[in-house]
């Protein structure tokens, strides 16, 4: 692998290899000495044009656990606020000697631009671009599901064949939903998207997922995974639903809906959560919830991605 830009073009074999390497990384995180010497001498730049807590910290922890040097860059307080272009920023990073660039950008496609531009020779990892994709989030979600469904010791090499995943909420603005739809369907899962019609994008018929407006009807089918998405206040410039109480009543996972889940169904949320809006505190803190497991899976998955991008003969992959 040279870059990790999206899950749409990620082959099933590559996805499984990332997940399997992540299992090995997760094993090393149980040891007393968590740091591995693998990426000693490599430089990883976290290039964040949008705010982020967990993704940036997670990438930073992953790179540091592999002994890489980490440079954090956020657009606020940098020359970007003086009007520096992406090209100049990238060339500056290339001159510093970055081996990998983890980029989050408000514009969809910015990581692709960087990877295809020739401005910089480093491996590019997409950490979320606009409303396009967030591949490591989808990979960590798949990793968490795989571990819950097959058990931590037995999930190597396994896919998600036949697992029914329901993704609920703001599909329109969600890069997490997009990345998950592509990845989960290539791993064999059956995906159902549930949202108010105003929060579904145009062209959703072409996605490998079924669509519903009725959360209660979908929950009655006993899905294996219920993934709640965050209502993205910062991207809500129109009235997509009358008010938050109405949204919460029809599409939120409240205690009453939680009680209707059966068997080993799990509740996921990529965070940060709006407690009381899309998910109740009871659901977020229940034993079904994997919110914190997702965070620790994130470090393992990102370690795997960095390892696979930065090891091996780079010349051969060009």
């Amino acid at each position: 692998m040279r870059h990790l830009l999206d899950t749409r073009t990620l082959s099933r074999a590559d996805a499984l290899s990332i997940l399997d390497v992540a299992e090995d990384m997760a094993d090393t995180q149980l040891r007393e000495v968590k740091k591995l010497p693998t990426l000693r001498g490599k430089t990883v730049v976290n290039l964040f044009f949008e705010d982020s807590t967990r993704t940036r910290i997670s990438f930073e922890a992953a790179a540091k656990r592999l002994s890489a040097d980490v440079i954090n860059f956020s657009a606020k307080g940098s020359s970007v606020s003086k009007g520096e272009s992406l090209k100049d920023t990238a060339q500056t990073l290339a001159a510093i000697g970055a081996d990998a660039v983890v980029i989050r950008h408000g514009a969809s496609g910015a990581p692709h631009t960087l990877a295809a531009s020739g401005w910089i020779d480093a491996g590019i990892l997409n950490a979320g671009d606009g409303t396009h994709e967030h591949p490591t989030q989808a990979l960590l979600d798949a990793f968490t599901m795989r571990r819950r469904i097959h058990g931590a010791g037995a999930s190597r090499g396994r896919d998600l064949d036949g697992v029914h995943v329901v993704i609920v909420g703001d599909i329109l603005h969600s890069r997490v939903a997009r990345s998950n739809v592509w990845l989960l369907s290539s791993l064999g899962a059956q995906v159902t998207l549930v949202a108010p019609p105003t929060l579904l994008p145009v062209g959703i018929e072409g996605w490998p997922a079924s669509v519903s407006y009725d959360l209660d009807a979908v929950l009655a089918e006993n899905p294996d995974v219920v993934m709640m998405l965050r209502i993205q206040g910062e991207r809500m410039h129109d009235a997509f639903f009358p008010n938050s109480r109405e949204y919460s009543r029809r599409w939120g996972l409240d205690d009453e809906r939680l009680a209707r889940l059966t068997g080993d169904s799990i509740v996921m949320h990529p965070g940060p959560m709006n407690r009381g809006l899309e998910i109740s505190s009871g659901a977020a803190d229940s034993p079904r919830s994997t919110v914190l497991e997702q965070v620790s899976s994130g470090v393992s998955v990102r370690m795997a991605a960095l390892y696979l991008l930065l090891s091996g003969e780079r010349e051969d992959q060009r």
Partner: peptide, 21 residues
């Protein structure tokens, strides 16, 4: 005992998948 993550020639050989320890 898997030693993949401890090799000193990671940049020179094709990527190896770690094996379980």
């Amino acid at each position: 005992l898997d030693i993949t993550m401890y090799r000193d020639d990671l940049g020179r050989i094709p990527t190896r998948s770690p094996q379980p320890t």
